[in-house]
């Protein structure tokens, strides 16, 4: 597999020999994956459902540990620091996450949703700081003009696409090093999907983005590098263009030509 791994200088994330099983002695959901993730770029993880792509993504900010019997081997370095040696509190402040379905907190206003990370982490902010963070984050996701009049209404009345951008703003509010997105447009209509994709391309100027998708054309449209996973293995990792035009592994080719998935 190693022949597939592209050279990345000064990677943000370095995943080294990572294996994950949901039960001790059980089947590996992720098998011996090693990957370096390029800074300020979009890296897509593709593969058919059940291939381990979501598990790999969740291992990066250790969300996979919410399953009680999970077994993790190998390591992940975030800017040369082992994430499994850090407290999850600190780690998750540096790595933001966006989920499949928009999940703004229904009991909080739009304003409070953006600074939810600060609130949850017990960080007290001055009023001016709060306002600045909310405005900057909402501007970053191009939501500011749409919601500036209704900041103190609940976020749940927004459209699905707006909700998802609000969730991205919530992840950005901490100025994380990395943003993980787990099929962020699978619950959105094509127009909202296009807006989120544009937004991600805009955000990669300042953020490193790792995106799980099983929408191949999405990966082709917006990602710089792409991984293809199959049955827990990392089959291929390459520049997206190269992978789509000239896949090295027959399984990748099979997936890209729609043979399975």
């Amino acid at each position: 597999m190693n022949e597939n791994i592209i050279e990345v200088k000064n990677p943000v994330l370095s995943i080294q020999n990572l294996s994950i099983a949901y039960d001790k002695g059980g089947k590996y959901a992720v098998k011996d994956v090693s990957v370096d993730v390029k800074r300020d770029s979009i890296t897509a993880i593709m593969g058919p459902s059940g291939c381990g792509k979501s598990t790999l993504l969740r291992a990066i900010n250790r969300m996979h540990e919410l399953y009680p019997n999970i077994v993790t081997e190998g390591k992940i370095l975030l800017n040369d620091e082992d994430v499994y040696g850090m407290s999850t509190i600190k780690l998750r402040r540096k790595i933001g996450m966006v989920f499949q379905r928009p999940n703004p907190f229904p009991t909080m206003s739009i304003f409070d949703n953006v600074i939810a990370g600060y609130k949850l982490n017990g960080i007290r902010l001055k009023k001016s700081e709060r306002e600045e963070i909310v405005e900057t984050s909402l501007r970053d996701v191009a939501l500011w003009d749409e919601v500036r009049e209704s900041l103190f209404k609940k976020g749940t009345f927004l459209s699905g696409g707006q909700q998802q951008r609000l969730c991205i703003a919530r992840a950005l509010a901490f100025k994380p090093d990395v943003i993980l997105l787990d099929e962020p447009t699978s619950a959105l209509d094509p127009v909202a999907t296009a807006r989120v994709e544009d937004l991600l391309v805009e955000l990669k100027k300042n953020y490193t983005i790792v995106l799980v998708t099983h929408n191949m054309s999405q990966a082709a449209r917006i990602s710089d590098n792409a991984m293809f996973m199959y049955l827990g293995e990392l089959v291929e990792y390459d520049k997206t263009k190269t992978m789509f035009t000239n896949p090295k592994d027959s399984r990748t080719e099979g997936y890209l030509t729609g043979e399975f998935g």
Partner: peptide
Amino acid sequence: LKEAAYSLG
């Protein structure tokens, strides 16, 4: 919702 909060630390 719980996952959203966990992901924020």
